[in-house]
Design a binder for these strands. Structure first.
Lengths: 251, 251
DNA sequence: GAGGCCGAACTGGTCATACCAGTTGACCAC
DNA sequence: GTGGTCAACTGGTATGACCAGTTCGGCCTC
């Protein structure tokens, strides 16, 4: 009752096959170089029609997790050397919904590295988003007490900044980061509160961008992000030391 | 004759359909929100089996370019807000092989933003790749006169550094950047020569990483990357001013 | 025996044709 | 108006056949 009921998503057969194989690959159960069974064999083993298997395989190929050769056999790729950032969210959570802390840390680190450059570029050529930044800032001021609202607004703020940076690579990377973020955003509302509530820093960043001050924009962005990053990394370190007993999760 | 003959890749039907639709979406011909014809209709229009159309559509969905709803219709997404970095190389070159300079600049900017952080993290926790860095440096020294070899070796150097950073987000982003890079690497061998030939800087970077000096590693990486970045951005500016006449390529 | 041709037996790719399963909207009863 | 129902879409699943590459071993030639 606290929130909207979840939308009841039903997975298709091919989705299920896809998830199963992907999980096998990401977990290392299926190693790079290994050859998968033939489509017909897989279909029989999984008790589904060949079309479903085929669809799953083609999607895995699209995601660069396997290669398929007409007439030859299908082999598992080393996704760490081939996949793109859209794999991040799948890597972050395993089949049971557990978070992979190493991946979480990676996401945080990337966020920190990109933020200053995003702000700099936005200051250089994205002044047209200032109006939207102002709207978001206004909504943040109006919701200073509601951390969840603040969290969502700050995400909007960054999304707008990225858009203003007019850098498609940043936008695409940001999409993947945001998707990963969604998996554990609720868990971190408190840890990140300091970042959201630094409204004056957000305003300073907006002003620097509006004036086209690249260096200052970059610095301000870095300051804001660091507030959250240090908090997040502390959380992760805490969780890591908690799970030292039953973990043999090196690779 | 100069090089190996190209491997003659033949595209499957579904590949062709996929490419066609993707190009339509990336070029803006198919706008976000627009609904695509039904699978059966598309199949008839394109004179192919429904299965081929279906496969193309599912792959487009996998790449986050469209959404498919059972019973409903298929609609085009705003890929700038949904896709991951694996779309970069497709965005960089259009159907005729022409480069999109804006995308090229984005790639260069991202490279510059990530390199220092990559070096820092590698210094922090990737000492185990030092041996491989040394091997690459040795091969660079042995090929000081061969720019092509240098170029490939420097790419290896960075790939190894990224691996040592132990940051999966960086690795995945790097994969996409490298794939984009491959499209125009040959064209830029000369422009980037200054970067490749700065062997002493590479050595300094390796030493800093080996000693775990994070700040110095980051700085050295930035210096190396900047050599190439400024050269590349100049090339792009030159090309941009050349194609002012027949360009209405704003969005 | 060395080299090359060739065909069986794999592999994935394409196709036609059903039918199942959600979604939508017009229509009708209440 | 409200809610139910049904027809006509949409995509999803299932078969079974055949086409098209790849692989590899056996045969033939030299």
């Amino acid at each position: 009752m606290s929130d909207v009921l979840k939308p009841v998503r039903k997975k298709s057969l091919a989705d299920t096959v896809f998830d199963q194989l992907r999980q096998g690959i990401l977990s290392g159960e299926l190693e790079p170089g290994e050859t998968l069974p033939a489509e017909r064999a897989l279909a029989e083993k999984l008790q589904v029609n060949r079309g479903a298997v085929r669809e799953a395989l083609k999607r895995l190929e699209q995601a660069r997790l396997i290669t398929i050769r007409h007439g030859g056999n299908t082999t598992v790729l080393n996704f760490r050397r081939t996949a793109g950032t859209d794999l991040l969210s799948a890597l972050l959570v395993d089949e049971e919904g557990n978070l992979d802390l190493r991946v979480g840390r990676s996401v945080i680190e990337m966020r920190s590295a990109l933020a200053p450059s995003i702000a700099r570029l936005c200051a250089r050529r994205g002044r047209d988003v200032i109006d939207r930044l102002d709207e978001i800032l206004a909504s943040m001021e109006a919701n200073q007490d509601d951390r969840q609202e603040l969290q969502m607004a700050s995400l909007d703020f960054w999304a707008t900044l990225v858009e203003g940076s007019d850098n498609i690579a940043y936008r695409l990377a940001f999409n993947s980061l945001r998707e990963s973020y969604a998996h554990f955003a609720e868990l971190l509302t408190d840890a990140l509160a300091e970042e959201f509530e630094a409204l004056d820093k957000y305003r300073a960043l907006r002003d620097a961008v509006a004036r086209g001050e690249e260096e200052k924009s970059a610095r301000q962005a870095g300051e804001i992000i660091d507030l959250g990053a240090t908090a997040l990394l502390q959380v992760i370190e805490g969780l890591e030391s908690m799970t030292l007993s039953d973990s043999e999760d090196q690779r």
